[in-house]
Design a protein around this nucleic acid. Sequence first.
DNA 1: ATATAGCATTCGACAAATAGGAGTGCTAAT
DNA 2: ATTAGCACTCCTATTTGTCGAATGCTATAT
Lengths: 328, 328
Amino acid sequence: MLNERQTELLKLIVEDYIKTARPISSNSLCKALNCSSATIRNEMALLEEIGLIEKTHISSGRVPSEKGYRYYVDNIMKPKELTGEDVLKLQQVFQNKSLVLTDAISKSMEIISEITNYTTVVLGPSSQDNRLTKVEVVPITERELVAIVITDKGHVQHKNIMLSENVPLNEIKQTVDLINKLVIGTPISEVSTTLEYEVKPIIANYVKQHEVLYNAFYNAFSDFASASNVQMNGRKNILMQPEFDNTEKIREIINKFDDKEIINSIKEEGNGINIYIGSENDIDEDLTVIKTKYNNNGEEGTIALIGPKRMEYDHVVTLLDYIKQNLE
Amino acid sequence: MLNERQTELLKLIVEDYIKTARPISSNSLCKALNCSSATIRNEMALLEEIGLIEKTHISSGRVPSEKGYRYYVDNIMKPKELTGEDVLKLQQVFQNKSLVLTDAISKSMEIISEITNYTTVVLGPSSQDNRLTKVEVVPITERELVAIVITDKGHVQHKNIMLSENVPLNEIKQTVDLINKLVIGTPISEVSTTLEYEVKPIIANYVKQHEVLYNAFYNAFSDFASASNVQMNGRKNILMQPEFDNTEKIREIINKFDDKEIINSIKEEGNGINIYIGSENDIDEDLTVIKTKYNNNGEEGTIALIGPKRMEYDHVVTLLDYIKQNLE
DNA sequence: ATATAGCATTCGACAAATAGGAGTGCTAAT
DNA sequence: ATTAGCACTCCTATTTGTCGAATGCTATAT
């Protein structure tokens, strides 16, 4: 589609703009392309007609359009080799054999956020399809207890429960034993149903204060099933970008970052490393989101990186790829 | 110190400014004080001399100084009665008997952040002076286990542990039993020491892979002791205040909010509800922080509210007081 | 056919100039 | 003790002008 010089021109514009955040003039590219500014202007007019670059005003330099970034990412960009320094920082995480995978992911995304000055997000796997392995209860006071729920994939969650009336310890024990007998092996998403139809009728006979206990556990399990697990690093980074140098935009973005709904929508379904430029993502048309799935023992989570559209795509992709490699 | 009219004047200036965020002119107060603007100007000059109000430029209206806010808070302000609406919202939390105290606090501060449009912070109690009640281990795979630690105050924490070599299940069990025997009842802050001097020498005899296990548990306990527990609500709220309508300031504040160090420094030592205006707090001289301790079964935490100096002190104090009452 | 030099043109960024208005402080009169 | 009146200060918004960085276009050279 584009000839060699046009390709080179687009590449220069995109990469220059990524570096400087200022519109690129025809003059500034003369040496690089070894021709006069007039020639470059002609080519620029062409690229603009195709829609790959834009002007900010009638006599301004050129800026990549969304389509331009897309073309760059798809056809021009070459993955950038990692510097020794970057590798060194990340090695420290992956060589630490005593780290559980989820901790390794957290740590490495923390580091990537520092290296790149973008915002990173780790969306932990949901425990929806985990199976219940064990329920344990530890009494704290007469009315308060801690319920601990463990799944086969190693998810643990606890919840302090306040009983609405005093319940004798042995009744609590009986209930927990029953749950452990009847509910173990059930997927988390189905626990509520099992509780209601299998456990509830039985404890109604055994246990005096069955209502109170049943409700307490029912609530605890619902919380567990719906718990989401999101970690964000360097949310301030994105605000430092020069394109977000106005309060309105900053407020808009901070708002979106605070919105659990939006952040949860980051979940990636496809394979590989996927890039969503501007309006291609659901967060904000001025941002680019790069995501990839990871797989921990059959459980899937997402790691993502959020930055301005003017993002160092080559660097970022290589970093994420490096992490992906190391996680497997 | 101040006569009646001066007091009334300061009150009007502070409360007007809190509402409008604009300097107050002598003219605008004529009706309220029932005298001419010239008289008010004379009084204003006096208040300014004492340092209670300031001008933003030589011919501008007056703005409360830090000292002015302080005087207002200490001597003029009357607690504002809560509206039925506010009470209603908070009642829903406190009447829910199945909520554990910490959850009730979280929820109510969430609500307060919404009501006031300021930022709220809940600093959970540290588990430093809790005593260990139980350690439990659940194996997930050959190399991975979940360690669960419970304290007498009902704190629970879990940590997934990756063993650097395979360890037979019975050795793990032995170790955990030993820990449960020797370490229970020890304050969390001393667990590491006890582990090192009492447990380590013994398991060295019993257990083959004692090094691996010891390290794993040692790390798990250190994490537990150092874990902090901070919750923030509505951090965006503060950015919406008109006085923070420039990107530099916003970035500064967002940075400070992201800084665990600073946020942890919010911990309140004194009794009652304490107000730290501007330079009186450690976060930012343009902010006011209002804090109060709460007491959960002997464990102390802090709830705090962060807003601009131009804060609705009367409303906020009443709200915090209401919560404090209800928590006890 | 392609590349380039040259030129008019457009527009943003910045500074200077201008006008209007909101305040104040001070003085003199009540 | 209060207030009317007035000169004065400074902010804010708008206008104006200039400079420079770009562009598009046209005519010319290769």
